Simulated assay, not measured.
Amino acid sequence: MGSDDWYTSSTWSDEDQEIFSAKIKRARYRKWGYMVTKGEALLRSADASLFPVGEGLIREAIEGNPDKFFLAGYYETLGAFYARAGRKDDAIEHFRTAIASRTPQFGTRLTELDLATGLLSRQRPEDIEEAGEVLASQPCQDILMNVDRFRWEFLMATLKLLQGRAAEAVDHAEQALAIAGLSNPQFPRHPTVGVVNAPADWLEGLRNIISEAESVSVGKSLTHADWIPKRRS
């Protein structure tokens, strides 16, 4: 086992549990971060039986860590897991809590995109209204990475389509596809960082908006919430 495997691996054998327990007892104030990292690794495991363990570790950190600086990140991690699992209501509530828990010094503010994705996927009038407010609070020009700027434009195109504002939906769809087509890396030393690698059905949905916005409806291809990039630390 590598030096960090005890809290980064996605396994939970009897030996893993014994080692993890022993090291956590010695970790003191850093133990909460280790617990969340291990919890997230288990939530990304191919073994669904480990999901409750991962969820439990993160919830223990939420309840036990007296330093609320990282609380928003803990809720974001659970929200992303619930979104991947198709638990939209749980994902939305945890993204809301993450935003409410965020301190001025912490967070990338990308949780707004995750929350808007979940809200738009439910397509209820009150959710559509809230999604518009959430996206307006995080303007595209304030977003650094192209992959996240694409998500914002994509979500705005979906929002405008649901609101029946076809011309605005087309504008945002065109912007999203333009960003997706950028080939020059934002960071020459890290050519893949920020590169848009969207699902084919998202791109097809955007093209459909442009070609026939008046008749396109928002279906599964425009609303599934499983394309949430792994959160950057």
Rank of each mutant, 00 (worst) to 15 (best):
G2D: 14
S3C: 09
T8F: 04
W12T: 01
E15C: 04
D16I: 05
D16R: 05
R26E: 13
R26N: 10
K31M: 15
G33N: 03
G33E: 04
M35V: 06
A41M: 07
L42Q: 02
L50E: 01
I58G: 00
R59Q: 12
R59D: 07
A61M: 07
I62W: 02
G64I: 09
G64A: 13
N65A: 10
N65Q: 05
A72Q: 05
E76S: 14
L78N: 02
F81E: 00
A83N: 01
A83W: 03
R84Y: 10
R84P: 00
D89Q: 14
I92E: 02
T97I: 14
T97Q: 13
T97E: 13
A100H: 13
R102M: 15
T103F: 07
Q105W: 09
G107K: 03
T108Q: 14
L110N: 02
T111D: 12
E112A: 13
L113I: 10
L113Y: 04
D114G: 12
A116F: 06
L119P: 01
S121Y: 06
R122F: 08
Q123G: 13
D127G: 07
D127L: 15
E129M: 09
E130R: 02
E130A: 10
A131Y: 01
G132P: 01
E133P: 02
L135Y: 04
A136W: 05
Q141I: 11
I143Y: 00
R149S: 06
R151I: 08
E153I: 05
F154A: 04
T158Q: 10
L159Y: 08
K160M: 15
L162H: 00
Q163W: 04
R165F: 08
R165I: 10
A169P: 00
A173E: 02
L177T: 04
L177F: 06
S183R: 13
S183P: 01
N184P: 05
Q186R: 03
F187N: 02
F187V: 12
P188H: 07
P188D: 10
V193W: 12
G194W: 06
V195K: 01
V196I: 11
P199W: 09
A200V: 12
D201M: 12
W202C: 02
G205R: 00
G205M: 02
R207V: 07
R207G: 04
I209R: 00
S211L: 15
E214W: 09
E214P: 06
S215P: 01
K220Q: 13
L222K: 00
T223Y: 07
R232N: 12
S233D: 13
